[in-house]
Simulated scan of single mutants.
Amino acid sequence: MRSERALRALCRKELRGLDLDLPLDAEQLCRRYGERRGRPINVMPYPLPSGMPNGVWLAAGDGDYFFCQSNTTPLHRNQIIVHEFGHLIAGHQMLGQLDATALLAPDPDDADAALARTCYSDEREWEAEMLASIIVGWAAEAGGAVDRTVDDEGLRRIQRLLGGHGGWM
């Protein structure tokens, strides 16, 4: 298991130069990271059945898909997406093959079977949650450091002056 220090270093390396706006928008994070690496990350809000995780990462041939619970608050959805992003940047791999139709199937037995083949170890869940917490925490600190009376364009100028978000990582 990687230390918190190693996870912070991984975040700095992977997020450097993405020129993200504040407040943090998880979908913008995914879009910019996907563009940089030449493989899109598609965020798919979906009313996932109860008893299932709130988010699932599916690596497909044409890109990555983050299925996230649509029946939740925007803040919670952002956290779910950033958690799945944490799995991705940590290099976690899903176990076995996942059939997206089984995941989203109305038959709970089919969905349970699909998820059973995609479980992460507790260590990987801890890493993904720590990465998400680091990213969200950095964004909150950066946002709190900027005077709230500055308009959106002024905020973007200040961010770019600081080197994108290199200054808040």
Rank of each mutant, 00 (worst) to 15 (best):
D62E: 11
R36P: 00
A111I: 04
T72Q: 09
R8K: 14
E125S: 09
I135W: 02
S70Q: 12
R32Y: 04
G91T: 01
I135T: 08
Q79H: 13
L7S: 08
G143T: 04
T101L: 14
Q159T: 11
T73K: 09
A102P: 00
G61V: 06
M94R: 15
L58S: 11
P106A: 11
D151Y: 04
P49H: 10
R160Q: 14
Y46E: 12
P106F: 05
D107E: 12
D99V: 12
L24M: 14
M44D: 03
G164F: 04
E123K: 12
G166K: 06
R156K: 14
G38N: 06
E141H: 15
L88D: 01
P40G: 02
Q93T: 09
V136Q: 13
V82Y: 04
V150W: 06
A9C: 01
S50H: 14
F66D: 01
V146W: 03
P74E: 14
D152E: 14
L18S: 05
L20V: 05
L10F: 01
V43F: 03
D19G: 12
R32P: 00
Y46H: 15
L18Q: 02
G143I: 03
C30E: 01
P47D: 06
E27G: 07
Q69W: 03
F66T: 00
F66Q: 03
R2C: 01
M1T: 10
W126L: 13
L18F: 02
L104A: 05
G154N: 06
L58V: 15
G144W: 01
G137S: 08
Q93E: 10
W138V: 06
H87F: 01
M130H: 09
S121W: 05
